[in-house]
């Protein structure tokens, strides 16, 4: 543990804080962009209905219905 501490202490990792922040903001921006895209609205509308119907599958998960997800 001691040697590891020395190594990490000497590595001068402070610039990684900025990298972490950039990654963080990029991920956040990506999610926002995805949410705001118009074309996803339909998918969201279908997803919203999921809890309300215990019987009907919204988008079946089999090969034939792959196209139906569009």
């Amino acid at each position: 543990m001691r040697g590891l501490s020395d190594a990490v202490g000497a590595a001068n990792l402070s610039s990684y804080a900025v990298i972490a922040m950039v990654l963080f903001i990029a991920a956040f921006g990506g999610i926002i962009a995805y949410l705001l895209l118009r074309r996803n609205r339909q998918v969201f509308d279908r997803a919203r209905q999921m809890p309300l119907d215990d019987e009907q599958v919204q988008t079946p998960r089999n090969a034939e219905n792959n196209g139906a997800a569009q």
Binding site: R46, P51, Q58, R61, A69
Partner: peptide
Amino acid sequence: KRRERHIYVA
């Protein structure tokens, strides 16, 4: 083994 493709937010 779910039959619904999309996973609801819950």
